[in-house]
Simulated assay, not measured.
Amino acid sequence: MRLLHLTVAILLIAGRTAFATPCQFEAQGEGRVAAVVDARSVRLDDGREIRLAGIETTATTKQALTSLLAGRDVTLRGSNDTPDRYGRQSALVFIGESDTSVQAMLLAHGDAMVSAEITDKDCAAALMTSEAEARRQKKGSWADLSAIKNAESSDDILAGIGRFVVVEGKVLSVRQAGAMTYLNFGRNWTRGFAVTISKRTLPAFEGAGITLKSLESKRIRVRGWVEGSTGPRIDVRLLGQVELLGANEPTGVKP
């Protein structure tokens, strides 16, 4: 009988591990939201300023965040509670005892975009799934057809310089120059859209079994901050900024 009970206990523990809710990092404290500072930061009643990790904002993020969090008790979770240079603590935020992060809620309603800064594989996948569902259903910001930029429309992308954008298109060529690899989406290398990936980022791709040269002629989705002057660029520093798309996949749908 003791053996049976032990076996059942082991199975229960294994089951909980197998179906564990993603993004359940170490608790970093609790508090009540006293104010929404901006589209991705809140201030707790003890004075701490919390920056929502894992997302970038849209035009509707602040309003949605206010509706979700104003006056609510929250739990903070993350892998590092060291404040940034502005004194903000970066964390995933959970309302009360909820297992779903506020970030996932914002993403699921199209009120935010995944930033790719969460490196935990399961958590990153869960956040991306929330965003993908909103894209699929054209919710929130994804209802705007221009929310995802066409890699062939370099002028349209360049108009978003200094902003976080999502771009989709076919990689026409992969070229290396010094310590930098360029994924070119246009035939005019100086004016067309390109993704830049430094040598120090290569191990992340190699660890995932991806060689940059293999992306040539592939359709990808890339996200990041637009830079450049004559031609728009996105500098990829994290593996999660790049997604391989299916050959016939419609815009805005994750395979």
Rank of each mutant, 00 (worst) to 15 (best):
109 H>Y: 11
135 R>H: 05
141 S>L: 07
114 V>M: 12
144 D>S: 05
138 K>P: 02
116 A>G: 12
149 K>G: 00
98 S>T: 03
99 D>K: 11
124 A>Y: 07
125 A>Q: 11
133 E>R: 11
121 K>S: 10
123 C>D: 07
167 V>K: 04
126 A>Y: 13
151 A>H: 04
162 G>A: 05
106 L>Y: 05
143 A>I: 04
125 A>Y: 06
129 T>Q: 13
108 A>R: 07
154 S>R: 10
151 A>F: 09
147 A>H: 14
96 G>E: 01
91 A>N: 01
97 E>Y: 05
96 G>I: 05
118 I>G: 11
157 I>T: 05
110 G>W: 13
150 N>E: 07
148 I>L: 10
115 S>R: 06
125 A>T: 11
105 M>P: 07
110 G>Y: 09
134 A>Q: 04
127 L>N: 06
137 Q>D: 12
139 K>L: 15
121 K>F: 11
112 A>Q: 00
164 F>W: 14
92 L>P: 00
117 E>K: 07
106 L>M: 01
151 A>M: 08
107 L>C: 12
111 D>W: 14
138 K>T: 08
167 V>F: 04
152 E>Q: 07
97 E>L: 04
150 N>W: 09
141 S>K: 12
149 K>I: 02
106 L>A: 03
130 S>M: 04
157 I>N: 01
153 S>A: 14
118 I>D: 09
109 H>K: 15
141 S>Y: 14
132 A>V: 05
154 S>C: 04
107 L>I: 10
142 W>S: 01
103 Q>R: 02
116 A>R: 06
145 L>R: 14
153 S>V: 00
131 E>G: 14
126 A>G: 07
95 I>P: 03
167 V>A: 00
147 A>S: 14
102 V>I: 14
126 A>D: 09
153 S>G: 00
100 T>N: 13
158 L>R: 15
120 D>G: 05
95 I>A: 04
118 I>T: 14
159 A>N: 09
115 S>Y: 06
150 N>L: 13
124 A>K: 07
141 S>T: 15
154 S>P: 03
115 S>I: 07
93 V>A: 02
163 R>K: 15
153 S>M: 09
139 K>A: 10
160 G>F: 11
131 E>K: 15
